[in-house]
């Protein structure tokens, strides 16, 4: 790889622009797509690799090419700068997520509590509209306050977010579903909300709950076949 190509690849990553790196395996010749115009079959393979976020091998005119997608990081929007968020944010960063914390309550969303993290103090619906969740975004609401959680969920449900989770017990969630129904959301939309949030690992502490949420996000991302939460766990703080 030439230093120029590496610099171009890194520039695309900084600009959060998806690019595919194509390598001819016989001699190591390389180029970036879409920066470089490519023969149809290679351009199609590059486009597909980016869309599916999976590397691929293509043969063109008897030459083997490796097609390596470089997508911007997945995003995680955390609504509620609460204690669980303080555990969730660094763990999500380790997994590779670009994390944004939304909370209009300035006492909670401080640089002290979330060093180096993008904090948004707008009201949650305005923040969510600006952030525009897409198919590479996960959204978790943690405020426990319908005034803050509901508007965020309303926008999330109108987006293609690949994961939507909401903290709160089954009872809390039943009330939430009733409110969201009044806002015009149907059953299919409601079924997208993971609530009570997180895999049922009987989590108690904030970091344990964060772990259960992240595990559920990864499972959603990778299409893992998981049983939905069974009976409520008496000791689960996530269900509190």
């Amino acid at each position: 790889m030439t230093p120029d190509l590496l610099a171009a690849l890194q520039a695309a990553q900084v600009a959060k622009r998806p690019v595919a790196l194509l390598t001819r395996l016989s001699d190591g010749q390389q180029c970036l797509w879409p920066e470089t115009a490519l023969p149809g079959a290679l351009a199609e393979a590059a486009e597909r690799a980016l869309r599916e976020d999976a590397a691929a091998n293509v043969t063109l005119d008897g030459e083997a090419w490796f097609v390596h997608p470089h997508n911007p990081p997945l995003r995680l929007i955390v609504v509620g700068a609460v204690h669980i968020a303080q555990a969730l944010v660094p763990m999500a960063q380790t997994i590779g997520f670009a994390v944004t914390v939304v909370d209009p309550r300035r006492a909670w969303a401080t640089a002290d509590r979330f060093p180096g993290i993008t904090l948004i103090h707008e009201w949650t619906d305005d923040a969510m509209l600006a952030l525009a969740p897409d198919a590479r975004t996960a959204v978790v609401t943690l405020t426990h306050d319908p005034k803050l959680d509901d508007p965020a969920l309303d926008i999330a449900l109108r987006s293609e977010a690949f994961y939507i989770g909401a903290l709160g017990s089954r009872r809390t969630h039943a009330k939430r579903v009733a409110r969201l129904a009044e806002a015009g959301h149907g059953e299919a939309a409601m079924a997208r909300i993971h609530a009570p949030v997180g895999l049922d690992i009987a989590a108690v502490t904030a970091p344990e709950i964060a772990l259960s949420i992240l595990a559920e996000i990864v499972a959603a991302r990778r299409g893992a076949a998981l049983a939905r939460r069974a009976a409520p766990h008496a000791t689960s703080a996530a269900a509190a």
């Binding site: 230093p3 590496l6 690849l9 890194q10 990553q13 990081p73 590779g96």
Partner: peptide
């Protein structure tokens, strides 16, 4: 940052 990006940044440094 994905782990693959991390490796590129390290290689560049």
């Amino acid at each position: 940052m994905s782990d693959s990006e991390d490796v590129l940044a390290t290689a560049a440094s």
